[in-house]
Design a protein around this nucleic acid. Sequence first.
DNA 1: ATTCATATGTTAGTTTTTATAACATTGAAT
DNA 2: ATTCAATGTTATAAAAACTAACATATGAAT
Lengths: 128, 128
Amino acid sequence: MSREFRRAMPLLPISMVMQLTDLTARQIRYYEEHELIVPARSEGNRRMFSLDDIDALLEIRELLDQGINMAGIKKVFAMRTKDYVTNTDIVRMSDTELRAILREEMQQAQRMQKTSLRQGDLSRFFQF
Amino acid sequence: MSREFRRAMPLLPISMVMQLTDLTARQIRYYEEHELIVPARSEGNRRMFSLDDIDALLEIRELLDQGINMAGIKKVFAMRTKDYVTNTDIVRMSDTELRAILREEMQQAQRMQKTSLRQGDLSRFFQF
DNA sequence: ATTCATATGTTAGTTTTTATAACATTGAAT
DNA sequence: ATTCAATGTTATAAAAACTAACATATGAAT
C-alpha cells in the first residue's frame, strides 16, 4: 500500500476540511465546481476528502492570498503534472486527474476490504 | 509536530471508522462506553476519531476474533502503558489515557490554528 | 460612472448522518 | 432455565451537509 495511495484515501467530512484549511464550505464547493479538487462522495452524496485534497485546498488558499485568481490557479494546477503508471504505460497527467484516479482506486480498495479482507490489520494500511 | 501528535488528531466521522474497521456503530459506541476508546466530540456532539482510535478498534476486533471478551481486552489495554512527557515529569499511563491526552492537545492545537496560524501550510503539519 | 464578471456570503428547504435510549436477541456459562 | 455480555434493532431528535437560488462586494473593462 503506497503512501500516495494512502494520501488519496477519502476520509474527512467537509467540516474537518473547513477547520484544517480555514476555508468556508462555500469556497470548498466552489473550487470543486471548478474542478480544482474532486472529492469522493459517500453513498448518501456527502463529500469525503483525502489528505491530497487538503493539500490542494491549502495551496489554493496560498495562491489566492498571493492575489492569483481562479484562472491562474487552474493554470498552475494544470501545469504541474505527474506520472501515473498503469499496467502497460506511464501516463503524464495533471495533479487533479491523478488525484481522482488514485481516489477511485482507493475506493475500490475500500470496497474490497469491506467484504473480503476481513482479518487484515489496517494499521499496516495506515501507517502514517 | 510529532507523529504521535498527528495520529491523535480527531478527523474521521463514525461512518468512515465503520468502513475502515468493519465494525458496526453499535459496537464502536459500546467500546467507547467501556472506555477502550475516547473519541473526541465535535461542537454538535458527533464523535470524531483519530488514527489511534482506528488502531485501537482494529486491535479490539482482533482480540474479539481470538475469543477474548471485553474484560480481557480491557486488561490488555490497561497493561500496555506508554510514557507521556510533561514539563516536569515522565508519566507512565495506559494507551487509552495517553490517547485521550494527546487528543486533548491536538484539539487545542486545532483551535490555535483556527485563529492565529493563518498563513501556515498544514501539509507540514500533516506529512504522512 | 456604469457595467460586468468573479468570488464569496446567505438563506431556504431537503436529505443524510449521527446521537441517545430503550427494548430485543443470541450464545455461553452457571 | 436463568443470567449476563455483546450486539442488533427501532424510534426519535438533532446536527451536518446537500443543492439551488439570490445577494453582495470587489475589481476590471467600457
